[in-house]
Computed example of a mutant assay.
Amino acid sequence: MRFSTDDGLFGFVVTPLIGSGMYRFQLVVHGELVGDTEPCFLESAMGTFGRLHQLDDSRLGQISADASSVMATIDSDDMLHDSALLSVAESLDGWKIRGYVYEGDATVLAQRYMSRPGGAEDPILVSIVPLTEYCSVFDASYDYWAKTRYGKE
Rank of each mutant, 00 (worst) to 15 (best):
L80M: 04
L52H: 02
T48F: 11
L27Y: 12
G35I: 03
L109T: 08
P123W: 04
G47W: 09
L80V: 02
G50I: 00
Y102N: 05
L42N: 09
L33H: 11
M71Q: 12
P16I: 01
Y102S: 02
P117S: 08
L109E: 11
S4A: 15
D78H: 01
P123L: 10
A106L: 00
S68W: 11
W145V: 02
K152A: 13
S68K: 14
V14T: 09
A72G: 07
R112E: 15
F41C: 02
S83L: 12
D75P: 08
M46C: 05
S127F: 02
A67Y: 04
D82S: 09
M46H: 01
A106G: 02
S127V: 09
F41S: 07
T15W: 00
F41A: 09
G61R: 14
D66N: 14
I63P: 13
S91Y: 05
M114T: 13
I128D: 03
S64D: 15
D78A: 12
S115Y: 11
R112P: 10
L17M: 08
V29G: 05
Q54A: 11
Y100S: 06
S20K: 11
I124C: 14
M79E: 14
D77Q: 08
Y142P: 05
A110I: 14
H30T: 10
S87Y: 13
G94T: 10
T73L: 09
L27Q: 03
H81Y: 15
S68E: 15
T48N: 14
G61F: 10
G21V: 00
F3I: 06
Y144S: 15
Y23Q: 00
H30M: 04
W145A: 06
Q111T: 06
G104N: 06
E38I: 13
G94K: 06
V137W: 12
V14Y: 06
G99H: 05
T73Y: 03
L9W: 00
G21W: 08
G47E: 14
R112I: 05
S69M: 15
E90K: 12
Y113P: 00
E121K: 13
Y102M: 01
D143L: 08
F10V: 00
F138M: 01
L9E: 08
V137Y: 09
G47T: 10
D6P: 14
S91E: 09
Q111W: 01
L92H: 05
L85Q: 12
S20C: 06
D57Y: 04
G61T: 06
G31I: 10
E121G: 02
Y134S: 11
L55P: 04
F49A: 06
H53S: 15
E43A: 07
G50P: 04
T73K: 01
Y134K: 10
A65F: 01
L52A: 04
C40G: 08
D93I: 10
D56F: 03
